[in-house]
Write a protein that binds this DNA or RNA. Sequence first.
DNA 1: AATACCGGCGAGT
DNA 2: TCATACTCGCCGGTATT
Length: 373
Amino acid sequence: MVDNGIRIIMCVDLDYFYAQVEEIRDPSIKGKPVIVCVYSGRTKDSGAVSTCNYIARNSGVRSGMPIALAKRIMAEHPEAVFLPMDHEYYESVSNRVMALLKEGSPRFEQASIDEAYLDATQQSAGDYALARDLSEKLKAEIFDTEHLTCTIGIGPNKLVSKMAVDSKKPNGLTVILPGKVREYFDTLPIGKLFGIGPKIEKKLASLRILTVAQLAAFDVQILSRNFGEKMGPQLRDAALGIDEEPVREREIEQFSRIVTLKENALSFTFEEILAPLAKDLSNKLVAANMTCQSIGIIAITSQLRTKTRSRKTDNPTDSDSEILEVASDLFRIFFAEEKLETEWTPVRRVGIRLFSLKKRDGDIREKSLTDFL
DNA sequence: AATACCGGCGAGT
DNA sequence: TCATACTCGCCGGTATT
């Protein structure tokens, strides 16, 4: 047992994942700009870039960018390949890689379709040099079996390993030793800290916090007052490279499905739009052997503002008809309320969300505990 | 006072 | 008109007990 309190955490990130999977599926596109897109179906090129390979990034294409803009950027590169996202396929590849990683360390946490954390403290006997060796083996194994490159970051916690992985991509391997954390973090612009996006960066700037070092030294009380009791201390800890979160597999806690309407509208046919979403979500619940006890709707307005409504159901359910019923009712109420608003806000995208998910057939232990309580 | 529920916001892949 | 589809986490307000 290795227990000097110092953990060794690895963050594994599959490089430009969707685009790389496409390169492997069709090697003839390798060497060209590859841009994987989510087409919304409104017009020929409406939609957004999901991800792209580094050749496309070098021309300025970015995730989240409108497809039409990406096409304009690539206008002088007619060899550029625009592909529709094939989520199911990427997921099947992801599942295989995640299974490999899980063998690398049983202390495993999948963070997204292309990212995972491993607690390698035991395997590497607390030795960062051994952890690096283990990472190299994992990289080789993933490449040999799936022909995928990945980047691995290593550090004393999930945050630092994440910052390490971000420091050198693609096909990188970076170790930030516990004693080097502050040194590395202090060189970073504040916006590069994981968890600090444009909004928080701006708010920090208004407090005259412009560097990670300034955030690390800032009065935590004032941070709490401005960001809340949880986020205040968390922000300062992040600047200090402190993160005690364990690497742990987590049960999924929500499912959602959302679609873009053909045209912005003040209402829509619930049966036509919502029924397929309800069916999909119900199928997902059944496949996961789960139920939900809260059903919500999502509406994204023409101004791209997100509005939500939700309702706790009387009983846990996985029924598509019940999901459809509740979602339709929530949309009826939503549009009735919207009508009373002064501004006329048509809706662009609509969706359904399920949460308060519970595993259905809890095992015997769990069951008897529940019965007991 | 503590907890549950709800709607909004922010971040990330 | 250029703006996807997800998931997670937190905040603050209000209702409930």
